[in-house]
């Protein structure tokens, strides 16, 4: 098969005796939103961990634009354009919101190390403006001098999304971006995600909320007990009996 934009091939991962991922293949076309659904413990987060250098798969390859990323370090993978939003918010709790979004914005330039110790943050006009704009879009601007650690869980997750988006990644991996959010926040997040969908950014999204999945995804893969059991368009998945069964077996709607 010709190499596509992002490709996971034959990935296996075991934890002790537990087979968390079993011969997983996944093909993501450029510009599409690919959803991964599946019951708790199916291995969804583990799969993403294998894509960003947090875990190294036992076997298999993960290729991004023809380049194998297995074995690369986390920061190298980010630098080639893959960003990740985690299932539990990973932010800089002791820093202010504005600092939280400025840091990822510096990364393209400073990631490999830059000793710009005599440059004042005040000279970073462009990045400061970009950062305030994105916080404004997320409705977080009036809190921008507050410590990120004091925010609500929903706001933390949205901040983390902002931190990823400011990097303009080529591929964005979202691990349950709306989990733990109030309905109202969920809707705001879906709106944001729809907006970036229009921008053509490629995304892989893990989500339990079917409402979110069906309104965003171009393609859906179903993962159960470490294996892909079905794949197709939202309509195909809705009518698939195997999926119904997998969900009845380990149903859980968070």
């Amino acid at each position: 098969m010709e190499s596509s934009f992002f490709q996971i091939q034959g990935v296996n991962k075991t934890f002790g005796g537990l087979k968390a991922l079993n011969e997983v293949n996944l093909n993501v076309e450029e510009g599409t939103v690919h959803a991964i659904i599946g019951p708790n413990g199916a291995g969804k987060s583990t799969l993403l961990n294998c894509c960003i250098g947090k875990l190294i798969p036992d076997t298999g390859t993960v290729t991004f634009k023809g380049e194998n990323v297995v074995g690369k370090t986390a920061y190298q993978i980010n630098q080639i354009g893959i960003a990740r939003v985690f299932q539990t918010p990973e932010i800089f709790p002791e820093l202010s919101l504005i600092e939280n979004v400025m840091i990822p914005a510096f990364a393209r330039r400073d990631g490999n190390f830059k000793l710009n110790w005599f440059k004042s943050l005040m000279q970073e006009d462009t990045i400061y403006k970009e950062a305030t704009d994105i916080l404004e879009n997320f409705g977080l601007k009036d809190q921008m001098m507050h410590h990120a650690g004091n925010m609500s869980r929903g706001d933390k997750r949205r901040l983390e999304l902002a931190m990823s988006l400011i990097q303009h990644p080529k591929l964005l991996l979202l691990d349950e971006p709306t989990a733990g959010m109030a309905r109202h926040d969920t809707n705001k997040t879906i709106d944001t995600l729809k907006k970036i969908k229009e921008s053509g950014m490629t995304k892989i999204i893990i989500e339990h909320d079917m409402h979110v999945v069906f309104s965003l995804a171009d393609k859906i893969s179903v993962l159960a007990q470490g294996a892909i059991i079905a794949e197709g368009t939202p309509d195909e998945i809705k009518g698939n009996p195997v999926v119904q069964e997998a969900y009845l077996g380990g149903a859980d709607d968070e």
């Binding site: 370090t73 986390a74 920061y75 980010n78 800089f92 709790p93 840091i103 990364a107 393209r108 990631g111």
Partner: peptide, 13 residues
């Protein structure tokens, strides 16, 4: 200091 792992996933060595 605040979150070193986050720094790596943000593209910092």
């Amino acid at each position: 200091k605040s979150n070193q792992t986050r720094m790596s996933y943000t593209g910092y060595n």
